[in-house]
Each structure stands twice: as structure tokens, then as C-alpha cells.
């Protein structure tokens, strides 16, 4: 939806749902050489392999270094326990000056994740800094599993429920986890 002009160069898209942004990103990749922030990403990949954060794993989806896929296992003690959540990670070409783009591919009932899977996490927006890495980002996401941030929600409805009726919220979240993430 953004660059139909460049669509001729696009590779087949993984899913129709998120065609827009991934299309843009991969068209950029096609234009720019891998060397751009490649070294940085490679380094992060190595780091991640050596010392992965708990319950998380991530790696390139195919041969494209800028398109990763990550999994987070719902931490125990939360309504998400036992669920396996898939995320798409797109690195912009000017990474690490810009944050990577993370999208949940698995549906999740969480006040910081909107219906399309986009996250509302501060470090992925304004407080992004090149000092952060994908490892830290994954850790941050895992931490919102443990403790949602209802005051900067993506879905205010869920946030409200979370604040007012925690039990009901947990119940729905558990049900969603059961239904979509297992």
C-alpha cells in the first residue's frame, strides 16, 4: 500500500496481512547493499546465539538479514504461560539509528499490543537509542508479559479491564493464549 511503484522488485510476501511494511522494507533492502548495518545485525545475531535471554529466541527468517523472526514463550506465572508467540522483526536500513519494527504474528490479549500486532513500547518509539540491541528489546517485551504497562496502551479497552478487573483480564488472556498460542 505504500510503494506500488516499487512492487515489481518485491519478493513474495510472507503474509498478506502485513504486506505493506514488509514490502517497503524489503524494497529498501533490495536497493541498499547488505553492508549497511549488516555488521551490527550480524553481531547482534551472534550475541543472541551465545547468550539468549530467557524464553526468547530469534534469527533471520531466510537469507534476508533484515527480516527476522522471533519467538517468546509466555513466562510462567502469567496468563500467557505456555504460549508460544511469534514475532516478525524488520530492521530498517538505517538501523541502529532507528528502532527495529516488531510485530506479533500470534494473536495475543495484551493491552500493549494492538489488533494488528503492533507494539506500544516506549523503547521502540521515542526512547529508542542505538545503544539498545534486539536482545534488550526482546527482554523488554518479555517484561511486559510479566507486567503490562496499562498507562501507555495500544488498546485502552484491555488496559481498563486490566486496571479494574484483573481477574477477568487474566482469564481472557489465558483463553486467548490457549486458543491462539498453543
Amino acid at each position: 500500500m505504500m510503494t506500488p511503484g516499487g512492487s515489481g522488485r518485491l519478493r513474495p510476501l510472507p503474509t498478506a496481512m502485513y504486506a505493506g511494511y514488509s514490502g517497503t522494507a524489503s524494497s529498501w533492502v533490495a536497493k541498499t547493499s547488505v553492508s549497511a548495518s549488516g555488521k551490527r545485525i550480524q553481531r547482534e545475531m551472534a550475541e543472541l546465539n551465545v547468550d539468549p535471554p530467557p524464553d526468547c529466541s530469534a534469527g533471520p527468517k531466510g537469507d534476508n538479514l533484515y527480516h527476522w523472526i522471533a519467538t517468546i514463550i509466555g513466562p510462567s506465572g502469567t496468563p500467557y504461560e505456555g504460549g508460544i508467540f511469534f514475532l516478525d522483526i524488520i530492521f530498517p536500513s538505517d538501523y541502529p539509528f532507528k528502532p527495529p519494527k516488531l510485530v506479533f504474528k500470534t494473536r495475543i490479549y495484551h493491552c500493549n499490543v494492538d489488533a494488528a500486532g503492533n507494539l506500544s513500547v516506549e523503547i521502540l518509539r521515542d526512547s529508542w537509542s542505538p545503544a539498545l540491541t534486539i536482545t534488550k528489546v526482546l527482554q523488554a517485551i518479555r517484561s511486559i508479559f510479566l507486567k503490562p504497562e496499562p498507562y501507555s496502551p495500544a488498546l485502552p479497552m484491555i488496559a481498563r479491564l486490566y486496571l479494574t478487573d484483573r481477574e477477568k483480564h487474566d482469564e481472557v488472556a489465558k483463553e486467548w493464549t490457549l486458543r491462539f498460542a498453543k
Partner: peptide, 21 residues
């Protein structure tokens, strides 16, 4: 350090961000 990271660890390449050519 840059937010607790060494500059070298940022792994910045000597290219223009976003416009590697």
C-alpha cells in the same frame, strides 16, 4: 560510554545511515 555501551560495541559502520551507497 554511550548509554552504558562502548562506541565500538555499537558496531556503527562508517557509512551514512540509511543511504549506504
Amino acid at each position: 560510554s554511550f548509554h552504558g555501551t562502548k562506541i565500538e560495541d555499537l558496531c556503527l559502520e562508517f557509512v551514512l545511515p540509511g543511504y549506504t551507497d
